[in-house]
């Protein structure tokens, strides 16, 4: 189980077309990720890290290539099936937190539970447990903008964990945080990895990347 393959990207390419201009961002990516891995993806700005992350997260589709997620050929999936897959299998942590400003901390955390059809009592219990684990329980009924950046990112991590996904994707999760909060977030991700989550982290800071067990560098649209 531990060594089982979670992700297999085969010759993935991604072109952006704006008018007549074609930008080839990814030029043939091969990547295998096993369950329980902690991978950092680095590379220059504009090298295509976020583009790759969005493909892995099923938010975008590649121009070519194939993507096997847990033995499923996910590129054949329809839009709503992809929504379900994201909902159950993938937790997202964004650089800019992406919390809903009009909802409370707890409501933000349980959002994936709502789309999964979990009943109200169960999902609120689960949400509170997560907040407790991340030391945010006192904040549960506040609006996100009342919280510090570090706290907001921890709320986002709690939300990513709501449906107990196998895979956590974090695109520069420390990018908007001070050093101390950034370190807290990294400690948290490491802890989650120890508990069995597969984590893929994007960063361009060497200090952050060194927390990962494997570091991948994107150069010229390929993995070096």
């Amino acid at each position: 189980m531990k060594d089982q393959e979670l992700i297999n990207l085969i010759n993935i390419t991604k072109d952006y077309v704006i008018g007549d201009v074609v930008t080839k961002v990814l030029k043939g990516i091969y990547l295998k990720v096993k369950r329980g891995e902690f991978i950092a993806i680095t590379g220059r700005s504009g090298s295509g890290k976020s583009t790759l992350m969005n493909l892995i997260g099923l938010l975008d589709t590649p121009t070519n290539g194939s993507y096997i997620l847990e033995e499923a050929d996910v590129l054949k999936f329809k839009e709503d099936e992809l929504s379900d897959l994201r909902n159950r299998k993938i937790g997202f942590v964004f650089q800019s937190f992406n919390l809903l400003p009009r909802s409370t901390v707890l409501e933000n955390v349980i959002l994936p539970g709502i789309y999964a059809g979990v009943d109200k009592k169960t999902r609120e219990e689960k949400g509170r447990n997560l907040l407790l684990k991340l030391d945010l329980l006192e904040q549960e009924s506040k609006r996100p903008n009342r919280l510090s950046g570090g706290q907001q990112q921890r709320v986002a991590i709690a939300r990513a964990l709501m449906n107990n996904p196998d895979l956590i994707l974090a695109d520069e999760p420390t990018g908007n945080l001070d050093i101390k909060s950034g370190q807290d977030v990294m400690r948290l991700l490491k802890k989650l990895n120890r508990e069995g989550k597969t984590i893929i982290l994007i960063t361009h800071e060497r200090d952050i990347a060194k927390h990962a067990k494997r570091v991948i560098e994107l150069i010229d649209g390929k993995i070096s």
Partner: peptide, 16 residues
Amino acid sequence: TREIGLRKALGARRAD
């Protein structure tokens, strides 16, 4: 728009 994107990322279907 961003809220809609976020909801979809978190698992909202079209019908939702």
